[in-house]
């Protein structure tokens, strides 16, 4: 029976199953997806790895990268839900389903999620210099709001408003470039 199976000629190629290659091609996309649906970094690390444990324990057919990516994301999504059921909701959003729709829409057929980050980079360049500086200080330099306020010579509330507006603009820009999602 074993021989019968492996000698079929309808497209099955055991050799195409290379777990390391699968991970190399899809890990980053799964990790970014998990982050996008609200997982903290370390949990995204854990669940991305768990995703590959799950699919390697229960294999599937590798027909094309996009289908594989889509399937892996759904496995990761359900593992995240299972994690919430088991261990509580600390650090996890209740809006994962919506975020999933956004990420799926934005990432499109790009399995790694680079498309989204590239678009983000382009949108970032369209922000005002002050908004860019504010966000760079926050995310690059990890400056406190107080430091940013001092540097930009505005109040801390001003910094908050500036960043909120900037993010609203980034989101609109991303929706323009990558597609909007019906709420």
């Amino acid at each position: 029976m074993h021989e019968d199976l492996t000698n079929r000629s309808d497209g099955f190629e055991p050799g195409s199953w290379d777990p390391e290659k699968l991970i190399a091609e899809h890990y980053l996309g799964v990790w970014r997806y998990l982050k996008a649906i609200g997982c903290p970094i370390h949990l995204a690390d854990d669940l991305a790895q768990e995703t590959f444990v799950a699919v390697l324990r229960k294999p599937f057919e590798l027909l094309n990268p996009q289908a594989t990516s889509s399937y892996l994301r759904r496995v990761a999504f359900h593992l995240m839900l299972e994690y919430k059921r088991k261990f509580g909701t600390i650090g996890l959003t209740d809006q994962a389903e919506i975020l999933d729709r956004y990420w799926t829409r934005w990432a499109g057929s790009d399995v790694s999620g680079d498309r989204v980050l590239d678009a983000l980079g382009e949108c970032f360049q369209r922000l005002t210099a002050r908004a860019q500086k504010s966000l760079k200080m926050r995310f690059e330099e990890r400056a406190s709001r107080e430091q940013i306020a001092a540097d930009l010579q505005i109040s801390q509330n001003g910094v908050k408003n500036l960043q909120q507006r900037a993010k609203a603009q980034l989101r609109q820009c991303l929706e323009e470039k990558l597609g909007a999602v019906d709420r």
Binding site: W31, Q95, L99, L117, F139, Q164, L170, R171
Partner: peptide
């Protein structure tokens, strides 16, 4: 939803601007 999407955007900005460069294994 806005707050949730803001958090998502924060994460993306964090990665793009390098906050998580030395972070998790999955960091790009």
């Amino acid at each position: 939803l806005d707050a949730t999407l803001d958090a998502m955007l924060d994460g993306m900005l964090g990665e793009w601007l390098g906050e998580e460069a030395g972070g998790g294994q999955g960091s790009s």
